[in-house]
Design a binder for these strands. Structure first.
Lengths: 220, 220
DNA sequence: TCGTGTGAATATGTTCACAGCG
DNA sequence: CGCTGTGAACATATTCACACGA
């Protein structure tokens, strides 16, 4: 199987499958069909089959997928099978929320280090991770083998933070700062901008009256 | 101009244009070209022109766009010109971060109410908004004319929260709970799932070795 | 002449329909 | 026979290339 290039959208669905498979494994369901996964995830069965087929044929025709096996496969595809280390930069409200959230759940992506510039925050703990000074960032990230960076600093600090993470060897970055960031080839950057999400949502409400005064004239 | 259906992706770019235009207006740049917007946003000039053209022709050929005018137009398209009210449900760490973030910046999407089930949180303030009991949700949302709901509650409470918001008249929802939610036709739902974002990021690191042991055999 | 506005070409992603195999 | 795996059809989104008008 010459591996086709895999849609980014498909990668985003894998963690959803993983979550559902974990749930089903707890419920001791040994075999699962694409129809059942569709039921639980909200995606279509064809799409699920196609997503899985990108990585090989792990189902049994006429039967379905082995729950435990599929879960392990997806975990491995994502690189979660032996834990990936992430570093959080910025221990403000958002950073704090992210850290609490990630530390309590899933150990598969593990927040291994937290950094902040504020001397008052340095030395405090979030969960059982001690907040360090950003001056230690490069050394710690390199030493701990951190692969993922999470940027939760003000926009004005975002680029320098990204640069430091990249130069310390981080390969993928999740950025929450509302800024256009540059990363070198080979580093994956994902932006989540809460302002954009909120503002674009307004478009779908009745507050947005796009040229409603305009007369629509149809002529063939 | 028979209005074409507008790509969701284009709507997501509008707030970015808005941000850049505000910045340029502060810098008193009266006219802006698609090339300059491209420079500042990271999108391509053609894409920017196409996005703007969906809503009409507000540029001047050979010149560019009037900064202030374009800003007002986009603000109006999004429905932000006279402020849209949002309600936040769930004043945990994430909810708190979102509220602080939204309350400090932009008044265009305004957090008009915050709700939580925890009696210890009810009555406290975030910024100058008092946290209310969720039992008041429907009444307050309806009365205040809230159009947008923000769901930052545990997954187990998410569906009931959405149902309450919808029945109170909310038209668009931003959901942070890791759950598959149902909304009726006509209500727009946007999910942001931080676990998914983090886990899918791992795929783009060297931790993910997708069948690297597999031998690639090419035969025509 | 310059930068907008836009159909046409391309690329990316999803759904359909069915062949293939346990 | 049932459900997976997959090419082909379709839908959506981006990029190209150029006509158009201030």
């Amino acid at each position: 199987m010459r591996r086709p290039k895999i849609p980014e959208a498909a990668i985003k669905r894998l963690p959803v499958y993983l979550r559902v498979l974990e749930e089903m494994q707890e419920q001791e369901v040994p075999i699962v069909s694409s129809a059942e996964l569709a039921e639980r995830t909200g995606f279509s069965p064809e799409q699920i089959r196609k997503d899985l087929a990108y990585f090989g044929a792990f189902g049994t025709r006429g039967v379905g997928y082995d729950t435990a096996l599929l879960r392990r496969r997806i975990s491995r595809i994502l690189g979660l099978h032996q834990g990936v280390k992430a570093a959080l930069v910025g221990a403000g409200h958002l950073g704090y929320a992210l850290a609490r959230y990630s530390l309590s759940k899933h150990k598969d992506v593990q927040i291994a280090a937290i950094f902040d510039v504020d001397p008052l925050k340095v030395g405090t703990r979030i969960g059982d991770v001690v907040v360090r000074s950003v001056s230690e960032l490069e050394q710690v990230v390199r030493q701990e083998g951190v692969k993922i960076g999470i940027v939760a600093v003000p926009a004005s600090e975002a680029q320098r933070t990204v640069d430091a993470l990249v130069s310390a060897g981080v390969e993928a970055i999740l950025n929450f700062a509302p800024a256009k960031l540059k990363v070198p080839e080979g580093v994956f950057l994902q932006n989540i901008d809460l302002t954009i999400e909120l503002q674009s949502l307004a478009y779908y409400t009745s507050a947005s009256q796009v040229e409603e005064d305009e007369v629509r004239v149809e002529q063939p």
